[in-house]
Amino acid sequence: MSVDKRKTIFDKLLGSDIKAELLIFFHRNPSFSGSLNDLASKINKPIEEVEKAVEDFVKLGLLNEVKHYYFDPEADKELQNLVLEDLTKEESKSTFELIKDVEKTNIEVLDKLLPDGFPPSGLILILSDPAAGKDILSIQILCTKIAVGRKGLFITLDKFPDEIRDFMLEFGFNSSVFEKENKLVFIDCYSPQVGIKSKEKYSEDPLNFPNLSILISRVLKELNSPIVVFDSLSTLLQKGGVRSSLEFLRSLTGKIKESKALCFVTLNRRAFHPAILAASEEIVDGVIEMKVEETEGKVENYIRVFKMMRRRHSSSWLPYIIDVEKGLLPKT
């Protein structure tokens, strides 16, 4: 698929926040059938704006128009496959840089998937099912890197920083030691959301994109090439709008590369339409996927590296277990 054709598809799918909201609505209600008034009422938007978005969806074949609009899951799957197939082809064509110094991740389950380790800088998306352990993995990565000398930054949108500190302690990592030496810094974006004054040195409303962007740039400069965790993009997409959040993600990717940092951004892959996930995947440098499957009454966890620029990686699903003290481990 050409770049222009892919851009046309993305524009028709995600060209406005209303389109994104419609996609999320249909993703959660695939059997919906109703009038334009019904749709506008469901997402609480002006009917004139909804009509413009619906017209593009009809042209794509995503909606079938009679007297009512109803979602076509088969057309949706075809569009998903088209976008994902194209992303996979692009990744397979990419060339790997000559790697002289391979730095292992020091996390066994990831070392099996990334023989060359992480790139020195870039933005990596952790795309995960609920309860698959994305919080554990992101903290595991951060603590492991800080322990060997790299500084860390945790931008939390979903929990109080003290909850993260307690979580780290469960893995035997005492954050206070590193915070005193300015080797670990928190940006509290959760307290402003719940109306509580933050006790952290750095705090910002995550929906104030300009101020948050300025604060992140300042802290990145102070820490000098840190490991960063941004938890989570899901909150931005749900509260700040899809288009604005994706633009913020694109801007963050640039800031991370400029500062030679390595950032891990978490995202719940079950909460959003695949087109939104694909748009996020296209922006970032790497994608780690985590899924939960239930077969014959047993719940199994799987992980793979779907994309990692300039690094060899395995896109095959690897089973793993979650150890409350050691984190993610390969299933033996």
Results as ranks from 00 to 15, higher is better:
255 K>T: 08
26 F>M: 12
119 P>N: 09
218 R>M: 03
98 L>K: 05
1 M>Y: 09
163 E>S: 03
75 A>I: 14
37 N>M: 11
134 K>I: 02
316 S>R: 14
7 K>P: 00
222 E>R: 07
98 L>Q: 04
27 H>P: 04
213 S>T: 06
46 P>K: 12
206 P>C: 02
116 D>Y: 09
52 K>C: 11
50 V>N: 06
85 E>Y: 08
112 K>V: 08
108 E>C: 05
85 E>I: 12
182 N>G: 01
241 G>C: 04
28 R>K: 14
101 D>H: 15
35 S>W: 07
8 T>C: 03
96 F>D: 05
164 I>K: 01
5 K>W: 09
4 D>T: 14
150 R>Y: 10
135 D>F: 06
307 K>A: 01
210 P>C: 03
200 E>P: 15
40 A>G: 01
189 C>F: 04
297 G>A: 14
177 V>W: 04
132 A>Y: 03
21 E>A: 00
295 T>F: 14
217 S>D: 10
73 P>I: 14
185 V>W: 03
17 D>E: 06
92 S>I: 15
61 G>V: 14
35 S>Q: 06
276 I>M: 13
194 V>P: 13
256 I>G: 00
135 D>H: 06
278 A>N: 07
30 P>L: 02
220 L>A: 07
140 Q>C: 01
17 D>S: 04
24 I>V: 13
234 S>E: 12
185 V>E: 07
130 P>S: 11
273 H>R: 02
317 W>L: 11
194 V>C: 08
313 H>Q: 11
61 G>P: 15
178 F>K: 10
268 N>E: 13
140 Q>K: 02
7 K>F: 13
195 G>H: 12
103 E>P: 15
275 A>E: 11
17 D>Q: 02
171 F>K: 13
30 P>C: 06
181 E>C: 05
121 S>Y: 14
162 D>M: 09
271 A>D: 10
219 V>E: 15
252 L>C: 03
317 W>V: 00
260 K>N: 01
217 S>N: 05
27 H>G: 03
118 F>W: 13
62 L>H: 07
301 N>Y: 10
57 F>T: 08
52 K>L: 14
219 V>F: 15
140 Q>M: 05
191 S>N: 07
133 G>Y: 06
130 P>I: 05
255 K>S: 07
252 L>F: 03
93 K>R: 15
56 D>R: 05
197 K>Q: 07
38 D>P: 06
201 K>L: 11
283 I>W: 09
250 R>E: 06
273 H>N: 09
41 S>P: 07
291 K>P: 02
38 D>R: 01
277 L>V: 06
151 K>V: 00
189 C>M: 10
239 K>Q: 12
218 R>A: 04
302 Y>H: 04
61 G>I: 07
206 P>H: 00
262 L>C: 05
163 E>I: 01
72 D>L: 11
31 S>G: 04
111 D>R: 00
13 L>A: 01
105 T>A: 08
253 T>C: 02
